[in-house]
Nucleic acid binder design. Structure first.
Lengths: 219, 219
DNA sequence: GGCTTGACAGCACAAGTGTTTGGCGGGTAT
DNA sequence: ATACCCGCCAAACACTTGTGCTGTCAAGCC
C-alpha cells in the first residue's frame, strides 16, 4: 500500500508552505488563511485549513489554535533551518584576559540582543545562551577572530577539549580557551600555537560557559 | 516648552514595547492588543491602541492597519538591531576545489534559506547575497572550517584585501581567499600566515562573490 | 475660572480570521 | 458494485481582534 512518507507533501502543500515562508520573510508576520487562499487561488478557506492541518501534523509548520496569523514555518525542504528566530542577550566583550561581566550582572532583557541563526537555534532554545563579542586575537587558531561574536551556553562544567569561557578567580579575568581537566590542575589551552597553555589549580577556575557558535561579520 | 523627544517614551510604552519584543521572540508572532492589555494589566484596549499609535509614530514599531497581530518591533533601546529578519538562499556547497553552482542556476525562491543575523543584515538587505555551506577544510586558513556557512555578496570585482570566492578557470575550482590585484597577476592570499599565496594570471580568475559573513555552529 | 492637551477607562461595533459541517468526485481496496 | 478515504469545495458560524466613540481626570496655560 502506497503511503505518503511523513516528509513528503503534495504540490499544493508545497505551494502553501513556500508562500508562508516568503510572506513571513517579507512582512514579519504570518499570512491569514484567507491570504493564502487568495494568493494561491484556492476556492475555499477550508481547503487551506485542511492542508495546514497536514503541514502541522508533518512538522513543517507550527500553529497556535485560534490565534490569528499564528503560523510559524519550522523547516525547509531539507529539514534544517526554519523561520524560527532566537535572540540572545549580548552581555559584553571578552578580551584576551579581560573581565567578563557575570551573566547575572546584566539584565538580559535590557541588553543588546543578537539574532541567532536557526542553525544554532537548538541550543539557544534552551534559554541559557548568551553572546559575547571577542576582542583580540588570542583565539585566532580556534578560528575565532577579533570582532567575532561567540555564542555561549551557560554551564559550569566542561568536558575535555571543549572550548569554554573560563574565569580565573585569582586574576579576576576571563578567557576563551580549550578546557582540559588534568588531575588537580586544569590546562587552558589556547588554540593559537604561538601561545602557551595556562595551568591553574582546578579550584581557581570557574567555567562560565561553553562556546556553541560563532558569528563573524566581514563588512 | 518641554516636549518629549521623539526617542523617549513613557514607562508604559516601554513596558509595552518590551512585552512585544519578548512575545515575538518567544512565540514567533506578535501579541494582540488584548494580549498586551491583559499581560500589563491595562484596563482598556483603547489605552493599548493609543500607546501603540505613539510607538508607531516614534518609530519603535511598525504596524499594518486592520491586520491581526501585525506588530513588528523595529529597534531596541539602543537603537541598533531590531527584529528585522533577513533570509538568503543557501545555494549549495563549496568544497575543496569543487564546483560552485552559479547563483543563476538555482532558483533563489525555491532554495533553502538561511536566516542572517542583523549584524550582517546591512548587506543582505541588498538582495544579492547568498550563502554556501563549506565542505572540507580547505578554507581553514581563512578562519573558515568544515561545516561553516559563508555569506557571499554577489559581485564580479573585488578590492585588494577583500575575501572573495574566486574561481580558477583552468582548474575549474573555487576557493575562498583574500584578493590582491597585482598588475597582470592576482595574488590569492590565504588568511593563515603559514600557507603560501597563490599567484595566477588575472584572466584566469573570476570573482564570484565577496565574503561578508561567517556562521559556525559548534554543537 | 475656562480652555486645551495628554493619558486613561469603558464599551460597543465591525472587520478580520479560524473552524465546522455537509457535500462532491475520483480514486482504491474489498 | 459498494464502501471508503482523500482532496477539494461552499457556505455558514463563532471567536478573535482592531477601531471608534464617549467620558473622566489631572496638569498646564491664558
Amino acid at each position: 500500500m502506497r503511503r505518503s512518507s511523513p516528509d513528503t507533501i503534495s504540490a499544493r502543500q508545497t505551494d502553501i508552505f513556500h508562500y508562508i515562508e516568503n510572506f513571513v520573510t517579507q512582512y514579519g508576520y504570518s499570512p491569514s488563511i484567507r491570504d493564502i487562499q487568495n494568493a494561491l487561488d484556492i476556492s475555499s478557506t477550508s481547503v487551506v485549513a485542511y492542508n495546514l492541518r497536514i503541514l502541522t501534523a508533518k512538522g513543517w509548520i507550527e500553529r497556535e489554535d485560534k490565534i490569528s496569523r499564528g503560523i510559524r514555518p519550522k523547516r525547509n525542504r531539507n529539514g534544517n533551518g526554519g523561520i524560527d528566530l532566537f535572540r540572545v542577550p549580548l552581555l559584553g566583550t571578552i578580551t584576551a584576559g579581560g573581565p567578563l561581566p557575570e551573566p547575572e550582572e546584566v539584565d538580559p532583557s535590557s541588553a543588546d540582543k543578537v539574532t541567532v541563526p536557526p542553525d544554532l537555534a537548538d541550543v539557544s532554545r534552551l534559554g541559557d545562551v548568551y553572546a559575547l563579542k571577542v576582542r583580540g586575537q588570542s583565539m585566532i587558531d580556534a578560528l575565532i577572530d577579533d570582532g567575532d561574536i561567540v555564542l555561549l551556553r551557560f554551564q559550569n562544567t566542561a568536558e575535555n577539549g571543549q572550548m569554554v569561557a573560563a574565569r580565573l578567580l585569582d586574576d579576576n579575568a576571563v578567557t576563551l580557551k580549550k578546557f582540559y581537566h588534568e588531575g588537580e590542575q586544569v590546562r587552558l589551552q589556547p588554540a593559537n600555537q604561538t601561545m602557551s597553555p595556562i595551568y591553574v589549580p582546578a579550584d581557581n577556575v570557574v567555567v562560565q560557559g561553553r562556546v556553541v557558535g560563532v558569528i563573524r561579520s566581514l563588512m
